[in-house]
């Protein structure tokens, strides 16, 4: 379970201060797939990056699996991070390492013995469907394959939580779909909690159970994904959903016309 309490984050550039996160309170259940949606600049990226403290919040607390992350110092934080996987929009694979070495990296960091690493990496590659690509380098892979390597790398250390920072935003719709299927599959198989941020409504609709809407650094709406689609309250959610409504209305008009003729 993840509990975020009174999280604040501001950026200072020169003399101006920008509030990125303003009093964020969120609870995410174990095993959930939780989506955070918002327009560009709403603060969703800051929020997810605060969860593993790639960015330091100014105040507030983050608790993941009973551990208060915001209280941890250097070494403890590094140990805690091993149990929080993360995938990125730009994949962030190492070009100097092949697929196997990329996936093995977190295990080497954690100091596991070689035979264990070999076995575990092969297991992960099989899970993401890349068993035959072990010796390839990232530059030889497609976007979707790169993200699969990213997922294998994020999960190889058996984390409790997977953070997804716009992981499908650089992919085409079909590849996005296959990656979402994979995440859903992993969520079911490994009972893994997934927190993802996105600006794509279909990502939410495909795999998320609960969601939060973020607007100017504040959470303006939370609940089940069904609730967002059926009864959007916040400005952001209405803007997102209105696009779908527009097409639904248009379709019913067109179908109506067809029936009339």
């Amino acid at each position: 379970m993840i509990v975020i309490k009174d999280l604040h984050k501001t950026y200072t550039s020169g003399s101006s201060t920008i509030t990125a996160l303003d009093n964020i309170n969120l609870t995410i259940d174990k095993g959930d797939i939780f989506g955070i949606i918002g327009f560009s600049g709403a603060g969703k990226s800051s929020l997810i990056r605060c969860l593993n403290r790639l960015e330091e919040p100014d105040s507030g607390s983050i608790e993941i699996g009973g551990k208060v992350l915001t209280d941890l110092s250097g070494k403890e934080l590094r140990l805690a991070r091993r149990k929080i996987g993360m995938i990125f929009q730009q994949f962030n694979l190492l070009d100097s390492q092949n697929v196997f070495q990329n996936v093995a990296f977190p295990l080497q960091v954690a100091g596991y013995p070689k035979p264990f690493i070999r076995e575990r990496v092969r297991e992960m590659l099989e899970l993401v469907g890349l068993s035959d690509k072990e010796h390839m380098y990232p530059s030889q892979l497609s976007g979707g394959q790169k993200q699969r390597v990213g997922i294998a790398r994020a999960l190889v250390n058996e984390p409790d939580v997977l953070l997804s920072d716009e992981a499908t935003s650089a992919l085409d719709p079909q590849t996005t779909y296959s990656i979402l299927e994979l995440l859903q599959d992993i969520n079911r198989k490994l009972k893994l909690t997934i927190v993802l941020i996105t600006h794509e409504l279909d990502v939410l609709q495909h795999i998320c159970r609960h969601m939060a809407v973020i607007e100017h650094g504040s959470i303006v709406e939370t609940g089940t994904v069904d609730k967002l689609f059926m009864d959007p309250v916040s400005y952001t959610a209405r803007r997102f959903v209105s696009i779908i409504d527009y097409y639904r209305d248009k379709r019913s008009i067109m179908e109506g016309l067809g029936a009339g003729i």
């Binding site: 190492l94 390492q97 954690a110």
Partner: peptide, 26 residues
């Protein structure tokens, strides 16, 4: 790229590991 360094940080890599396994080889 900063992203590669961040990915290593997110895995819990130490600064030395990042220097020798990420910065220099990349």
């Amino acid at each position: 790229s900063a992203g590669k360094i961040e990915a290593a940080k997110a895995m819990g890599a130490t600064p030395l590991t990042i220097i020798f396994r990420v910065l220099i080889p990349e």
